[in-house]
Amino acid sequence: MTARVALEIAVDSAAGARTALEAGADRVELCQALAATGGMTPSGATVDAVLAVAGDPERVAVLVRPRAGGFVYAREEVALVAADIAEVVRRGAGAVVVGALTRRGAVDRSALERWRTAAGEADLVFHRAIDTVAEPAALVDDLVACGVRRVLSSGGAARSIDGRAALAALVAAASGRLQIMAGGGVRVEDIAALRGLGVDAIHLSARTPSGDTAPSGPGGGGPGYDVTDGGIVRRAALALRSRA
């Protein structure tokens, strides 16, 4: 029997989490400032609200990222992430999503091992920092050694569908030792092909503009914001579960 492929939706609020889970998502990845920065650590209150909506800690992964920009961190940043991980896990999250590299593009094992300790029994997920290196599959052994449970990757491409060769190489290198999750620019029409690579999960944001045109005022940014689109999530779930 073919293993079930999970559907994960990136969200930034309890409302988004409810929409995603009710529309067929298996779990959510919670962050804040997704559109503006690619995702940052959410507030504790937001973590609590999403966990309450999900009703199951295994359905919630929380991004812990201290700033925008690259993934080479100073020791103070590593310590901050460790503290944030401990707090997120204390609140009940089933997984934390992190990523750290050395200046040479290798896994920062020292940071990951510290974060693994901070995470305790929660799953450790490595995010798309892996897509900044030339050969993502070359990092798999170090990720396994550091206790990483799953990896999010687009195969180094802007869109996962264009990174199929690298994603297939990740699946082969992992060989069941950790889960490979395809994510990055995923559209519903890409899902069948991505599933065919043997990945363990598909990740997308399913965002749409809120339609709010009220001005935000000086210093508040542009009008409107993104929300989770339940229709996109439902179509993604259908595409993932289809036998076609």
Rank of each mutant, 00 (worst) to 15 (best):
G217I: 11
S175R: 11
A79R: 15
T102V: 06
A14D: 05
R150M: 14
M181L: 13
S242M: 05
P57G: 03
A79K: 11
S13R: 01
T102Y: 07
G220K: 10
P215F: 07
I191V: 12
R103A: 15
A45C: 04
G120F: 01
G147L: 10
A166G: 03
G231N: 10
G69S: 13
S205Q: 01
V188M: 11
H127C: 02
T208E: 15
L30Q: 02
A134H: 12
G38W: 13
S110N: 10
R109M: 11
D26P: 01
R27W: 02
L152F: 14
A10N: 09
A74S: 07
R104H: 11
V140M: 13
I202T: 10
R103D: 15
R150T: 10
V11T: 00
A33W: 07
S205V: 00
V125D: 07
P215Q: 10
L240T: 11
T46Q: 10
L30R: 00
Q32V: 14
G24L: 06
E87W: 00
V148G: 02
A214P: 03
R150A: 14
A158E: 12
W115P: 06
R187Q: 15
A93S: 08
T132A: 15
D229V: 03
G94F: 00
L204C: 09
D108H: 07
A239E: 12
L240K: 09
A3D: 13
G184W: 04
T46N: 09
D226W: 10
A20Q: 04
R234W: 04
V227C: 05
A244W: 10
E87L: 02
G217N: 11
V64T: 07
A3S: 14
A25Q: 06
D108E: 02
A79D: 13
G163E: 08
E121V: 05
G156M: 13
G55E: 08
V64H: 09
T37F: 12
V125G: 07
A68I: 04
A25C: 06
V47F: 02
M181R: 04
R103L: 13
A158T: 10
D108W: 11
A244V: 13
I232T: 15
V151C: 10
A36F: 02
L30K: 01
T213I: 11
V50G: 01
P215H: 08
A165Q: 15
V98Y: 08
A17V: 00
D212L: 14
A74I: 00
V107A: 08
G24E: 07
V62Q: 00
A201Q: 13
L197G: 12
Y73S: 01
R91H: 01
V64N: 07
M1Y: 06
A169G: 12
A134D: 13
T213G: 06
P209H: 02
T228Y: 05
T132L: 14
G120S: 03
R150G: 04
E22S: 03
G105A: 13
R91S: 03
